[in-house]
Design a protein around this nucleic acid. Structure first.
Lengths: 336, 336
DNA sequence: TTGAAAGCGCTAACAA
DNA sequence: TTGTTAGCGCTTTCAA
């Protein structure tokens, strides 16, 4: 399994190895036939250039670190796919790392990326604490945060406009005649959740609605937690005709609980999600939701990072994308 | 963003740089206090070893290539997660590449991995043709195929026992009283599909059932194709009380079509899937299915590959894992 | 126990 | 147009 090197090729072709390097890099300072001959020899010998050696002298690995909580999360896996495609189209490959929502591990992975000399990192933070946690390292590697809004933090990030997304949702429900809309699954300690809740509150205020909450007391979001929370909610005496879930995952939990409680969606209550994860479009689920433009997000993230790398930008950019409503079958019109 | 090197540390500590290297690698041939002093200096200077340089001399990047059709496929993303965790636990990182079910691209990616000097590659092939397509390169990099059964091919692979999985499924349905079981979504050109269909046929034969097929004429599997196929099926006059779908994705397509046609699952027909992708456990879906042990698969794949790498094994291993039945709510008992 | 030096495979500046 | 050479940051002999 010994690989053939540039020197082997040079010897076989009877030239110096810098000539081979020139032939391969498409340098103009080489005659057409030596190039042809060398390329021919390369082919015959099955020569494949050693990227590691090249990285070393070029001081660029053409590698991007992708650190995210968990690829096995439909939102993340979709992004990972698009990020890879986009990066590859630009000549980069991805080192994938799952932080498993562990701040300590996240930091460890970031350091690892420094050691691996990646050209930059795309980070879907575990939470807003990630910024603090990583700040000692941030100066050492071009980084763009993604998915989470870091507010005024002096680091590049790309996120969706969570505030406006929530407003769009409330307005949609309002348009359907709903006047009692409960906001479900708000979680402390997440800026994303915070902004969505603010958008919800603001929209309620403007439309003359009374905000109602059912807060997530767990430290994470999952179908299971959504389910447990919804079970509690349905056991209470509260009046609402629609549930606006902080995330699709939460909404799925609500669906599950509703199914058990024989509460029909959307006949008995309407349900609106946020994110538009793949699950939401599945048959029988058909969740109406606020979509995060994932392909766009991936593309903007990669572009921002490569910009930063290639232009050695020292400042930072905040890119906020607009969410849109995806109408499916979980929300119904009610009589005012 | 200039990184401090081993030389900088050496200068600061007043030693030669080979001494620093020794201190870092935990070599025994160094005195305790110089080591302490050097480690201290490293910390102060925020030194992080350059893995690329190390890779070059060690001739090992501690990098594994992971080439798969599409991480944004619930089956793949789950595997990708576990593979990453497992690999990291063993000191390796993952370069993730999506082949997008493109044979040409797959080959390109494999070559890329050779250039990147990864220590090995895990490949979820686009199809059985992948083996042929990649065979010129296979000798150049330790590789283990995953997910697909390569039958007698002289390459390592890990797959589930698709044949037995299908038998388990048929027997389960038979036990529920079903005598007319239709096999749905069989696709030509996939060994996995082939083996499942064979298992189905064999089980039918043994139980005295007449096999019935509804073949997938598309070149890929997706909910959409499953849906289209199911629409055709439901438009025909065929008698069956259960559908055994070749994949969960196909089953989801059937569900969607059934919903439109007002065919109730499991009341009117039972539906059994294969794979147990995450979607299948979602509320309202609750698909009964044959589970591929994904975490185990990931773990076995990584172990096989590292074995091959570390022991410089030249032979190959075929590891076949046992699928199991996951009972949910899409299959009902019928009166014989 | 420590230092000097070679070399991993490549690019690029400098000579010829 | 081509060859020679230095050097990227590290590990590892070989000497001291």
């Amino acid at each position: 399994m010994k690989n053939v090197t540039i020197k082997d090729v040079a010897k076989a072709a009877g030239v110096s190895y810098s000539t081979v390097s020139r032939a391969l890099s498409g340098s103009p300072e080489i005659s057409a036939d030596t190039r042809e001959r060398i390329l021919q020899v390369c082919k015959e010998m099955n020569y494949t250039a050693n990227t590691v050696a090249r990285s070393m002298v070029m001081k660029s690995t053409k590698l991007l670190g992708l650190i995210l909580p968990d690829v096995n999360n439909p939102f993340m896996s979709e992004l990972a796919y698009h990020i890879d495609r986009q990066a590859r189209a630009r000549g980069y490959n991805i080192i994938l790392c799952n932080s498993s929502r562990d701040l300590e591990l996240e930091r460890e992975l970031f350091e690892l990326m420094i050691g691996r000399q990646v050209d930059g990192v795309i980070l879907f933070p575990t939470g807003p604490e990630s910024y603090q946690s990583l700040s000692p390292y941030l100066g050492r590697l071009p980084t763009v945060f993604a998915g989470e809004n870091l507010r005024e933090m002096p680091e590049s990030y790309v996120s969706v406009d969570n505030y406006r997304g929530a407003r769009i949702g409330v307005e949609y429900l309002y348009g359907l005649g709903h006047r009692d809309i409960l906001y479900f699954g708000r979680r402390r300690g997440s800026t994303t959740h915070q902004l969505r809740a603010e958008g919800y509150a603001a929209a309620c205020h403007e439309l003359g609605l009374t905000p109602q909450y059912c807060n997530n007391t767990f430290s994470a979001t999952s179908i299971k937690y959504g389910y447990q929370l919804a079970k509690q909610l349905f056991a209470q005496e509260r009046h609402f005709t629609a549930i606006f879930a902080a995330t699709d995952t939460n909404a799925l939990g609500v669906m599950q609980a509703a199914e058990e409680e024989k509460i029909r969606i959307p006949e008995d209550i309407s349900l609106l999600g946020f994110d538009n994860i793949r699950d939401s479009g599945l048959p029988r689920i058909n969740l109406t939701t606020i979509e995060q433009p994932k392909k766009m997000l991936a593309s903007v993230v990669v572009d921002s990072l490569l910009d930063k790398i290639q232009n050695e930008l020292s400042g930072y950019t905040h890119r906020i994308l607009m969410p849109t409503l995806v109408e499916r079958a979980s929300c119904a019109r009610v009589e005012g």
